[in-house]
């Protein structure tokens, strides 16, 4: 069976859910080999095996993490040259897409972004124009590189051995041009990750302040949801930028998306429009978010949100 490389997305060995989705997809295309770059493989090994990685190429050299994306692309390019995989799957995150971009140039391959599915003949399904069009595309040159959108596939376990193969690459000078001199890591709470969550509750300018976001968080916690925010709320400093949903923030596609105090500007819609069920709470009856909403409540979020939160807690 053809080998499929899967770039592992992880934080110090804690494997992100999107990786399990990619492994699940890769099994339908061939035999998955995980590519693990960075520290913490021991922590990751079991998960990767559980979801079907037959092999794990492990590159622990700290240098690979010390520069912007280029080293990861060099390592992958080396693996592509040595193993001639049938395809490379990466997560369609900001970094995943950039690694894909550089790898495409290095290997003379095409890259498809934001795929929501891939068929056995490597035709990718892309949900484009905010989900209004479904396109099928394929790579016509080189080794297909496909960036898969998180939350598009249900991960399924299928244990394999994840045979460890240590790998390294002699970085070129070109890969070391953009040096990371400091990593600023913001504290991350216990809530689910935005792009992984099956429910997202987002607040916008209507929330009014950082403190008031507690109202949004309480509803999110009652539902076991992630918290998102509009750009207006992020730019006001009420919530960190990682929570931004939209064109320049995260693209989310949960089972349920609740927008409170968000008007529904096109740039916001671009990041949440493909959610299965959309609920909007807004005091302005004319707010464009209602055009998308399966269920809309015209009202003050400070009344509606606490009430629905209480009601949910009561029913649990």
């Amino acid at each position: 069976m053809a080998e499929i490389l899967v770039l592992v997305d992880h934080a110090d060995g804690a494997v992100k859910k999107v990786t399990l989705e990619l492994l699940t997809k890769a099994r339908a295309l061939g035999t998955p080999s995980a590519v693990f770059i960075g520290a913490g493989y021991d922590k990751a090994a079991e998960k990767l095996a559980e979801y079907g990685a037959a092999k794990a190429y492990v590159a622990e050299d700290a240098e690979l993490d010390g520069y912007v994306t280029a080293p990861k692309a060099e390592l992958l390019a080396k693996l592509v040259a040595e193993h001639a995989p049938a395809a490379v799957l990466v997560p369609a995150t900001a970094e995943g897409k950039e690694v894909a971009a550089r790898l495409a140039i290095k290997t003379g391959s095409g890259v498809l972004t934001d795929a929501v599915d891939v068929s056995a003949d490597l035709v990718a399904e892309q949900s484009i124009f905010g989900g209004s069009t479904v396109a099928h595309s394929k790579v016509a040159k080189g080794t297909p590189i496909i960036a898969m959108r998180p939350n598009a596939t249900a991960p399924e376990a299928a244990p394999a051995t994840a045979e460890r193969v240590d790998v390294s690459v002699e970085l070129t000078d070109a890969a070391k041009l953009a040096k990371v001199v400091e990593k600023v890591v913001l504290p991350k709470g216990d809530r689910p990750e935005l792009t992984e969550a099956s429910i997202v509750v987002s607040g916008g300018r209507g929330v009014g302040s950082g403190e008031n976001f507690a109202v949004i968080e309480k509803l999110a916690d009652a539902l076991g949801a992630a918290v998102g925010a509009s750009r207006a709320a992020v730019d006001a400093g009420w919530y960190p930028h990682q929570a931004q949903v939209g064109q320049t923030g995260k693209t989310v596609s949960p089972q349920l998306y609740i927008a409170a105090g968000i008007s529904g500007a096109i740039q916001h819609r671009a990041g949440m429009q493909t959610s299965k069920t959309i609920v909007a709470i807004n005091k302005d009856e004319e707010a464009p978010i209602f055009e998308l909403a399966d269920y809309g409540v015209i009202g003050d979020l400070f009344k509606v949100v606490p009430q629905v939160t209480d009601e949910i807690l009561k029913r649990k």
């Binding site: 003379g108 269920y295 409540v297």
Partner: peptide, 30 residues
């Protein structure tokens, strides 16, 4: 290096329910 094989427009989202909060909007949403 990439080709679009086919494309189709999705049917637009069907119109949802809209209620005005009259003190029980949260309960109705629940």
């Amino acid at each position: 290096a990439t080709t679009v094989v086919d494309a189709a427009q999705r049917p637009p989202r069907s119109a949802g329910v809209k209620v005005t909060d009259e003190g029980d909007g949260g309960v109705k949403l629940a």
